[in-house]
Design a protein around this nucleic acid. Structure first.
Lengths: 253, 253
DNA sequence: CACGCGGGTTGACCCGGATCAAGGCGGGCG
DNA sequence: CGCCCGCCTTGATCCGGGTCAACCCGCGTG
């Protein structure tokens, strides 16, 4: 599963955002956008922010962006591709903590321990913006909007962490998972009703604290009920309202 | 359950830390201590921090420190007593998010939404330090150590949120819960082996995503196995190592 | 006093999802 | 080509913990 020479699925990420030339479009959808391209910034400050960003990648499917225990020096915004974060306990069992889509930020939970408390593994061929954290903190001291933005990012992730905490049925969890993904894709300008699941059924199951067989069964049932169309990892939400209804206990609002 | 006129349990909190006269002892154990009394601060800056702190309380058992939807203006450090945070979904079901002991901080998850996303309810007679967040942010911009401290607090809570995420047996959850409490009491200078459970079995069950009956059964079993001594809400850990062993899959390290 | 009520404990039963098992793709490679 | 190996699906069985129910206790109140 964690092969050192993982096979890249595709020669080129199918993700439209991978186009490195389209800076402004990507940045407009990134979680840092309000910090990077906020209208209120004067030019010298924006230049400072730009210069602490470093573009890194590509990482192929299965490669690590960072590993548990690595010293914390930077946070990463996903430019394209998908990432899972996971912890591996001493018995070797994997625990998937989350999936991160283009525009989202990984590494925030490493600030306190000053070492990464989890692995980050690419699921697709992926590119990132790397933000040196010392530089970013220093900048945050001088630009209140940057500080506020970091506080908000951290606090936001606190809120979403409690999403999968409840004891809910497999159907509720799966419906909420699909609608959460849909909402996050929509927030970044992608289709909210058709998208590709970059993660395996096993990863979904692990994340939702279900067995892989259960995930498979629930998806089959959703299909037979006409809620979704699914073929391999290509997904279409046919009745998003019904799914939202199903997952409402887990979803915000 | 959420009576508007809850009966205060005791005329005076039994908590030794409630002594308002013993400032330095309390502050030495508080989560803000390194910000409030850090050696590196010169006096004018420390004075600024002091003046944005406001002591509030007492809150009696059952009273709200804040409610879902309240506009976010401040975070609170528990001076004495215990607090639970909870969300109530639209079907009226309660979801306990966490328990907070003296020295710990509540309200951080409200920064992003700018409104409190949950209720905070006192379980004991409780006192707090109230930190105006706008003032604190402004101070953080001028004093890097304060900014760093806030980042760390937020990031730390991110880490602990993933504690109860896994799918683990009732025994593992309960053992981890008890050892977590023990560690947090110890970190604030209390006994790590004898303490009072301020929360009901129902709250524990809700927090651990178990039925109240299961909590009762597990505690009874732990007692019959000689792991703990428990009488009502008074708890003594007889074999902390065995408990840590049981809960290791859920505990840090 | 009797009574109600919330919290706690314990027993009996049942169900959702884990586990075990078998088989079907599809892609990479000898 | 044929084989293997992940990944996925579907069926059969089992069990941990939820649910229902009965009961106890302490406390506050009419």
């Amino acid at each position: 599963m964690d092969s050192k020479h993982p096979a890249g699925r595709l020669p080129e990420p199918p993700n439209p955002i991978a186009d490195d030339g389209d800076e402004t479009h990507f940045c407009g959808t990134c979680a840092f956008s309000s910090a990077c391209i906020a209208a209120g910034y004067n030019k010298p400050e924006l230049a400072q922010l730009q210069c602490l960003v470093e573009h890194v990648g590509p990482f192929r499917a299965g490669e690590h962006i960072f590993r548990t225990g690595d010293p914390f020096r930077a946070i990463f915004a996903v430019r394209s591709g998908t990432v899972k974060t996971r912890m591996v306990d001493k018995e070797g069992r994997e625990q998937v903590l989350g999936f991160y889509l283009p525009g989202e930020v990984i590494g925030l939970n490493a600030i306190y321990p000053e070492h990464f408390p989890c692995d980050a593994v690419a699921l697709d061929t992926s590119f990132f913006c790397r933000f040196s954290f010392p530089a970013m903190s220093a900048l945050a001291s001088r630009i209140p909007a940057v500080q506020k933005h970091l506080f908000r990012l951290l606090s936001k992730e606190l809120g979403s962490a409690s999403l999968l905490a409840g004891d809910h049925s497999a159907d509720e969890r799966m419906a909420a998972f699909l609608m959460d993904l849909a909402g996050r894709y929509a927030a970044r300008g992608f289709s909210a009703t058709r998208f590709h699941l970059s993660m395996s059924r096993g990863d979904i199951a692990n994340y939702l604290r279900l067995a892989a067989e259960t995930v498979s069964r629930v998806l089959s049932r959703f299909r037979s009920q006409g809620l979704i169309r699914i073929e391999g990892r290509e997904l279409e939400l046919l009745k998003p309202d019904a799914l939202r209804q199903l997952g409402q206990a887990l979803l915000p609002d």
